[in-house]
Design a protein around this nucleic acid. Structure first.
Length: 492
RNA sequence: GGCGCGGUACCCAAGUGGUAAGGGAGAGGUCUGCAAAACCUUUAUACGUCGGUUCGAUUCCGACCCGCGCCUCCA
């Protein structure tokens, strides 16, 4: 069965096949590094990560490039205000973005920084001018002439045929031939940062960087281009226009767009007070694994309502999966096999759910059903030794996509705690975060020693002593379970 | 105004032309020295409202109400 994906360009779900051999060449619009990434940004990046991971799991090789926009109007403005160079200003937020991505177990694509490719962008613009698709204005800026590109609007399904010229001309863009013409290259205004180039001093327009860098890394026509839904217009529409004007070839086969999320049922905005960065949530004590699972739990084309209640639910889900994995790994089971089909059927269900336009909700339903059935088998003594490995493998298969099983929340939260201290944000640190991090102060050896003491007390039927040790470990953030196979523990 | 998406139980959320996945939460129970974990039972005569097509619609069509997105370099 092949992967079926919604393609914004055709407006339909289509079978996805790479253009060349077995390699998928994909480009994802990355962050503009002028501030910390918020939870909406990361919904998109997690969606792309899931796509990437599933393509890999399916057996494709993936060449995945993502841009870092480290020059734009906002950056120039903010860095000037901060009294920093553009480079120094963006470096901080680029680093934060990469850290946050890794906190969410987002696999890192090949990165392409806009400021490392200024030369190519200038050449791109010069070439467009030569072909008559671009014109220079008096101040030295360059614009794309959309009247020369008849299929303009094909991605966003907009009809510009009857568009009035100059209907809404911005004050500082009075030189454009048509209000819809967009900037390819911006001449510097006094005091602004700029780059020297063959087409004169200035800085690239926003859209040109993605066209120039994606074609540079992936070729003139490649498989898939991803981003948030807001980028459909104008950003991706403009990329298509520039790129296809330059090459005369189709730019991208599949356009993949992730839907925006809501926060507590409302559009996220700073003024509504529901604007959260990833770090804000961590400071409140929410674990990265729960955040990732929530972001991944609703299929990417659906609006996701991001709530704190949902976050708590997802934390329970993560616990349930990790508990189950631990139960399988530590349990003693009689030899033989009782049920050879549960694991394989689950894998099949997950795969076909993901093949169906990445239906992550159904994939999760499949794994939870497996967990319940297997738990029943364990409870009833029906679980056999040979059934364990396939079930663990099915969990791993799930985790190759969702990446929430590994118990690595505590060190990540510790890093965020340290960041908060360095940034003077101690007042935002919650009790929950401190507790999560507190587990770190106990080494495995410490814990094992305490567990041993607890077991000894239990054998002596000194329950008061054993309960005291257990209470201590529990309050340090451990899950401690007494089972017939002995005491089992893990960090929560 | 133009184009597009969605409204499913207490909450989150799949899905189908023939009568509703999964998770969380609540209640009761099993197990247990007590816990924890796990499991069982239970919680939508019903899928925004009103019409239509159909033997039959939550699923198709139309209207309306509500939420959301793009049309302004916000993922």
């Amino acid at each position: 069965m092949a992967l079926r994906l919604y393609n914004t360009l055709s407006g339909k779900i289509e079978e996805f096949h790479p253009l060349q051999n077995n390699e998928v060449r994909m480009y994802a619009c990355g962050p503009t590094v002028y501030d910390y990434g918020h939870i909406g940004n990361f919904r998109t990046f997690v969606a792309v990560d899931i796509l990437r991971r599933f393509l890999l799991q399916t057996g494709f090789r993936v060449r995945h490039v993502m841009n870092i926009t480290d020059v734009d109007d906002k950056i120039i403005r903010n860095s000037a205000q901060a009294g920093l160079s553009v480079k120094a200003y963006t470096a901080k937020y680029e680093k934060a973005f990469l850290e946050d991505s890794s906190t969410l177990n987002i696999e890192q694509p090949l990165l392409a920084r806009a400021t490392d490719h200024i030369e190519e962008m200038a050449r791109f613009v010069a070439e467009l001018e030569k072909k008559g698709f671009a014109y220079r204005t008096e101040d030295g800026s360059y614009y794309f002439r959309i009247a020369k590109f008849p299929s303009y609007g094909k991605l966003s399904k907009k009809d510009f045929a009857g568009m009035e010229d100059g209907a809404r001309v911005d004050v500082d863009e009075y030189e454009k031939d048509n209000a819809r013409d967009f900037a390819l290259w911006k001449a510097p205004k006094p005091g602004e940062a700029f780059w020297e180039s063959p087409i004169g001093p200035g800085r690239p327009g926003w859209h040109i960087e993605c066209s120039a860098m994606s074609m540079h890394e992936l070729g003139e026509t490649f498989d898939l281009h991803a981003g948030g839904e807001d980028l459909i217009f104008p950003h991706h529409e403009n990329e298509i226009a520039q790129s296809e004007a330059l090459t005369g070839k189709p730019f991208v086969h599949f356009w993949f767009h992730a839907r925006f999320l809501l926060v507590e049922g409302e559009k996220m905005s700073k003024s509504a007070g529901n604007f959260f960065t990833l770090r804000d949530l961590a400071l409140r004590g929410y674990k990265p694994s729960a955040i990732r699972l929530l972001l991944a739990s609703v299929p990417y084309r659906h609006q996701l309502n991001f709530t704190f209640d949902g976050l708590k639910q997802m934390a329970s889900n993560v616990e349930k999966l990790r508990n189950f994995q631990l139960r399988l790994k530590t349990g003693q089971f009689p030899s033989g096999s009782a049920d050879s089909k549960l694991a394989s059927e689950t894998v099949e269900r997950m795969t076909s759910a993901l093949n169906d336009d990445l239906n992550t909700a159904q994939a999760q339903a499949a794994i939870f059903e497996m967990v319940r059935k297997a738990n029943v088998a364990i409870d009833n003594g029906q679980m056999k030794k040979d059934d364990v490995a396939p079930l663990l493998a099915a969990l791993e298969k799930f985790d190759e996509i969702f990446a929430v099983l590994r118990d690595d929340d505590a060190p990540k939260m510790k890093a965020i705690l340290e960041w908060a201290k360095a940034e003077g944000r101690e007042k935002d640190v919650s009790q929950e975060l401190l507790e999560s991090v507190g587990v770190q102060s106990l080494s495995d050896a410490d814990i094992e020693a305490k567990i041993a003491a607890m077991e000894a007390a239990r054998r002596a039927r000194n329950f008061q002593a054993s309960d005291a040790i257990r209470a201590e470990l529990t309050s340090a953030g451990l899950l401690v379970e007494i089972t017939k196979d002995g005491v089992r523990w893990r960090r929560k």
